[in-house]
C-alpha cells in the first residue's frame, strides 16, 4: 500500500500543477475582464469555465479507476464520431452502416481494456476497413458509394482509432522504464496535458506576436510566430514535466514535446480544412466557448497515435 502511495505521488503532484495552472489562468481572465469592462470577454470567460468542467471530468476519471478513464475516452470517441456524422453529407441508405461504425467503438475500447495490442491495432484499419464497404454494398445503391465509404472510414480512423491510442497508454507495459518511475497513467497525463497546453500556447503566442501566416486559406489565424512560440514553450514544459511522470530521458522528453507541438498543429489545421470544406465554423456546440468536441480534440487525433508509437518504440 505504501509502495503504491509513493508510486502515485508524482502523478498527484502533476494533477495539482494542472489545477494550479487552471486557477492562475482563471484569475488572469477575471482580472482582464475587470480591467477592460469596455471589451467583450464573454467567450474567453465561457471557454475558461468549460476548461474547469473538462479538467474536473478528466481528473475524476483518472483518480477513480483505469476502467473509468477508458470509458471516458470511449465516450469522447462516440461524441466525436456522432459530431462527424452529423456534419458530413450522408446517404439515407447507409443508416445501418453508420450503426455498425458506432458499434466499432465499444469493441475497440474493449481491446484497450483487455490490453490486446494486436487486435487493437488492426481492428479498425483492417477488419472495419474491409467490413464497412461490404455492409454498404448490400443496400445496392452505387451512387456516391466511394465518397460515402471514404468519408465513413476517415471519420472512424480519426475519431475512434486515433483517439483510442491515448487510452491504450493506460495499459501499455513499460519494461524499459526504470522501477517505479513511470506508469501508463503518467504518459496519458503527459500527452493530454501537453497537447491541450500547446493549443493554448500557440493561440497565445499567435495572438501576441502573430504576423506571418502559415496556411492562410485553411486557417487564417495560424501564424509562424504562434506555431514556433508554442513549439518552444511546449518542448520546454515537456522537459520540465517528463521526469515527474514519464520514463523519458531529457533528449526523448524534448523530442516528445516537439512532436506533440508539431502534430497538434497539423491535427488542428486538418480539422480546419474539413470545416472549410463543409462550410461550418465549429464542428458542434457541445462545449460552450470552444465549439464542438472535435474542435477540442482535433490536435489529439494526431498527437495520440504519434506519441503512442514514439513511446512504444523506445520504451517497450
Amino acid at each position: 500500500m505504501s509502495e503504491m502511495m509513493t508510486a502515485l505521488q508524482p502523478l498527484h503532484l502533476a494533477l495539482l500543477g494542472i489545477w494550479g495552472l487552471l486557477i492562475a489562468a482563471s484569475l488572469l481572465v477575471w482580472a482582464l475582464a475587470r480591467s477592460r469592462p469596455d471589451k467583450d470577454y464573454s467567450e474567453l470567460v465561457q471557454r475558461t469555465q468549460s476548461w474547469w468542467g473538462m479538467i474536473a471530468i478528466f481528473t475524476a476519471a483518472f483518480l477513480l479507476s483505469r476502467t473509468l478513464s477508458i470509458i471516458v475516452f470511449a465516450l469522447v470517441s462516440f461524441l466525436a464520431l456522432k459530431e462527424y456524422f452529423s456534419m458530413i453529407p450522408t446517404r439515407r441508405a447507409d443508416r445501418r452502416v453508420l450503426f455498425w461504425a458506432y458499434m466499432a467503438i465499444p469493441l475497440q475500447y474493449y481491446w484497450v481494456a483487455d490490453g490486446w495490442y494486436g487486435m487493437f491495432t488492426v481492428f479498425i484499419p483492417v477488419y472495419m476497413f474491409l467490413f464497412l464497404p461490404f455492409a454498404m454494398l448490400l443496400s445496392q445503391q452505387t451512387d456516391g458509394f466511394l465518397k460515402a465509404v471514404g468519408t465513413l472510414n476517415w471519420g472512424l480512423m480519426l475519431c475512434v482509432f486515433a483517439i483510442s491510442h491515448a487510452a491504450f497508454l493506460l495499459v501499455l507495459p513499460l519494461p524499459g522504464a526504470a522501477e517505479g518511475s513511470a506508469s501508463g497513467a503518467g504518459l496519458l497525463l503527459f500527452l493530454v496535458f501537453l497537447t491541450q497546453f500547446n493549443d493554448v500556447a500557440q493561440y497565445t503566442w499567435g495572438k501576441l506576436f502573430g504576423r506571418h501566416k502559415i496556411v492562410p486559406v485553411v486557417s487564417p489565424k495560424k501564424t509562424w510566430e504562434g506555431f514556433l512560440g508554442g513549439l518552444a514553450t511546449t518542448t520546454l514544459l515537456a522537459v520540465l514535466v517528463a521526469p515527474l511522470v514519464t520514463p523519458f530521458s531529457l533528449l526523448h522528453a524534448a523530442i516528445a514535446g516537439a512532436l506533440i507541438a508539431a502534430a497538434g498543429f497539423i491535427g488542428d489545421v486538418t480539422v480546419s480544412a474539413v470545416k472549410r470544406d463543409l462550410g461550418v465554423k465549429d464542428t458542434g456546440a457541445l462545449i460552450p466557448g470552444h465549439g464542438g468536441i472535435m474542435d477540442r480534440i482535433d490536435s489529439l487525433t494526431f498527437t495520440a497515435p504519434l506519441f503512442f508509437h514514439f513511446t512504444r518504440y523506445f520504451y517497450t
Binding site: F78, K82, E83, F85, R92, R95, R96, L98, F99, Y102
Partner: peptide, 17 residues
C-alpha cells in the same frame, strides 16, 4: 436531424446530433 436518427418506417435508431 431527428428524421435522420429515426425516420418513418425504421426501428433502428442511429445517433445524430
Amino acid at each position: 436531424g431527428l428524421g435522420k436518427a429515426l425516420p418513418k418506417g425504421s426501428f433502428l435508431l442511429v445517433p445524430f446530433f
